Structures are given as structure tokens and as C-alpha cells.
Simulated assay, not measured.
Amino acid sequence: MSRPRILVAGLGDTGLLTAIHLSKHADVVGISSKPGLVSGQELGLRLARPREWARDYWVAFDRYHRLDSVRTVHGTMTRVDLEARRVHLTGPDGAAGTEPYDVLVIATGVTNGFWRRPNLQTGDQVAAAITLDHERLAAAGSVIVLGGGAAAVSSALNVATTWPDKRVDLYFPGGQALPHHHRKVWGTLSKRLERLGVGLHPRHRAVVPDGFGCDEITSGPVEWSTGQSASSADAVLWTIGRVVPNTTWLPGELLDENGFVVVDEYLRVRGAPGVYAIGDVAATDPLRTSARSRADGLLAHNIRADLDGGTPKPFEPAARRWGSVVGAQRNSLEVFSSGGRAFWIPAWSLLQPLIVWRGIYRGVRKSG
């Protein structure tokens, strides 16, 4: 009996780990708009220290030995034929193609700001975009960071650490930042930001200019809907969490009113037999992927259970976000528990067990 053919649409943070989990049990094909993993994690490191970031968050697919049995396809999905069980796509040369499936996993994620984009890119284009953002900040004498999530806090801290002579200000809409983490996390990181000289400005909500998708670093004044006078800087980072699901290739009946894929408690897509969704693109809970490292293993279990007549397990999202917030600092990584406790890993050589357990880097990589 032939093994089932599983098509993973999207090989970002979650899709790649899902493909790894399934690779021993099925013929897996992954479709990616990038030539390797270009993670959406640790934005602050990517902006301030791109070489260090690329070491662990931009990884060619052939460096994962557990992907050796997975065929990766470089392209973007254009539509899916649910009845024929085929995904239509366009390759880097513009040629159209199709990929059949027995099981489809939708893991195309979301567009978010200037750093998480679904567009088809070569390795050189990825490198050029990362370098351009870094040089834009390096040349700025002052930086405004807008937003209260991990991307905003990480960006403010890493910019201030890398360029201590810059004026850096963090503006966020609530009374404190990191509202989806335990309050102790903000208590720890706000003190660190203050020691670095970062200006903290709570209860500031930026006015997004008409027609602006928050998809580039800007300059000039920022207006506030909360009544404060306008603020300005040489570079403005719009890390406000204005996410758009990458689902234009999917039929509307699979989506909710905001364009996210509707799933049941087992991550099955409603109304589409043999189709599942995982990660930011799935309409699961307000935190989306707060339990990412648990969800990919659970989804693999559920797919195998559905194929073999086993018992699936329901997805239970975490109540709070946990893990790294600001990335590696001075060759150490700080990880926060869901209860707000900080754990320091003192050297990168000690990280491999944590990496595999947490799913931060999606599997064991080949050396070299």
C-alpha cells in the first residue's frame, strides 16, 4: 500500500516543523515562497544584528537532515481545487504548475509589517531586503518604535543596545507593553529598556495614514488618535500587529470574516475533507500560535489518526505567550515561562536541547 501524499503549503516557522513531524510517516511535499526558512521571529535581532540573526533564523532547507525525504517546491500558491485535491502554483520563472495531495496542510501564515511578506523571493532578494532595513536604521539618529508586542519591544531593546548613541522611543497603546505575556515579563524588560535610555510612552495609539499598509520603515511625524502632540524621528518602525492572512489562494467558504481559515478543535478545515490549517493563518484563538511548538506535533498526530482510524486530540491554546522576547544578548538567550519567570541559557552550545524541545529552530540542522 502506497504512503499518503501530504502537501504542506507554507514552510515558515510552523509549516516546516509540521513537515518534519510527518516526514517519517508519509510522502511529504512542501511549497515555499522562499528558498529556505526565513523566520518571522526575533525582529529586533534581524534589524540590529542581521548576521547573528541569519545564523539561526534564515536557514536553507537542505541544512535540515529531517527534511531529506521531503521534496520542497519554490513557488507561490494561486488556487486550490478541493474536489480534485490539487494546488495550483507559480514558480520563480513564472511557469504554472500543480501539486496533487491526499492531505493538505495550510500553513501560509500572515503578512505583518515590513518583515513578514508572502512574496516570492530568491536568496539574493531576501539578503538585500534584510540589509536594506539594517542600513536604514544604522543611518538614523533617532528611532520611533510603534507597538506593544514582542516585535516592538525586541526592536526597541536591540536597536538601543547596538547603537547606544541613538534616541530610541517605544510607544504602545496600553498601560504596559506585552499584554499577552505574564505581567512580570514587562516588569523585567521595561527596567532594562529604561537603563538603555529608551523612552517609554504608554497609552499612545498611532494614526495609520490612509492607504499605508505599515509595510515599510518611514520617517517624519506620527499622529496620535489618543490626543498627544505629534512625534517624529528619522526612522519609524510600524510594529503594530496589523496582520493579514495569506489566504487569497483559498476559496472564501473556508475563511472567516477576517480571512483566516476556519478550523475545528482538531485543526481540520471545516467543509474541506483532508485539509488542515495551523499557525497564524488558522482562526483558532486570539494568541494564534502561542502554543506553536505543541500545535505542530498535535497536528501531525491528528493527521495520522484520521488516516489510520486513531483518536485525534483537541488543540488547547496557551493562556499566555512564552519563550524568547528579545533574542540572544551577549551570547546568552533569555527565555520567559508562561508564569513570567526568566531563564538564562549561558551559551549557544547549550541550546540544542532547548531548540529541539521548544521548536525555535525547527529540528536538528546539518553542520557546516
Rank of each mutant, 00 (worst) to 15 (best):
L120C: 07
Q125N: 12
A283V: 02
A282T: 05
S33R: 02
R304N: 01
W344G: 00
H21Q: 14
L43F: 10
I355M: 03
G75H: 05
I31N: 08
V29Q: 09
R365F: 02
Q121E: 13
A277K: 12
G175D: 14
K366N: 07
A60W: 07
A319C: 00
L350R: 13
N112D: 14
R66Q: 15
G175A: 07
R292C: 06
R304C: 08
S2N: 11
S33A: 15
E194I: 07
K184P: 00
Q41F: 04
Q121H: 12
G97K: 00
P50E: 03
D210T: 09
G15C: 05
A318Y: 11
A347W: 12
S337H: 06
L16V: 01
R270F: 00
K34Y: 12
D62Y: 09
V29L: 11
A60P: 15
R358M: 10
R167L: 05
W224R: 01
T122N: 10
L89M: 12
R3T: 06
K366G: 00
L47P: 06
H88E: 14
G327V: 03
R365M: 02
W58C: 11
T18F: 07
R86D: 08
I278P: 13
T311P: 04
S293L: 02
A160I: 05
H74A: 03
I106T: 10
S231K: 11
G197A: 06
G175S: 04
V243M: 15
Q329R: 15
D93H: 02
T14C: 13
R203K: 13
E42H: 04
D280M: 12
C214D: 11
Y276F: 15
A319V: 08
L237H: 08
R320T: 14
S2Q: 11
V356E: 11
E83V: 15
W115Y: 15
A160K: 12
G271Y: 10
L267A: 13
L7Q: 09
W163R: 01
R362L: 04
V261Q: 11
D169A: 15
A9K: 11
D169T: 13
G174L: 01
E52T: 03
T78V: 11
K166D: 03
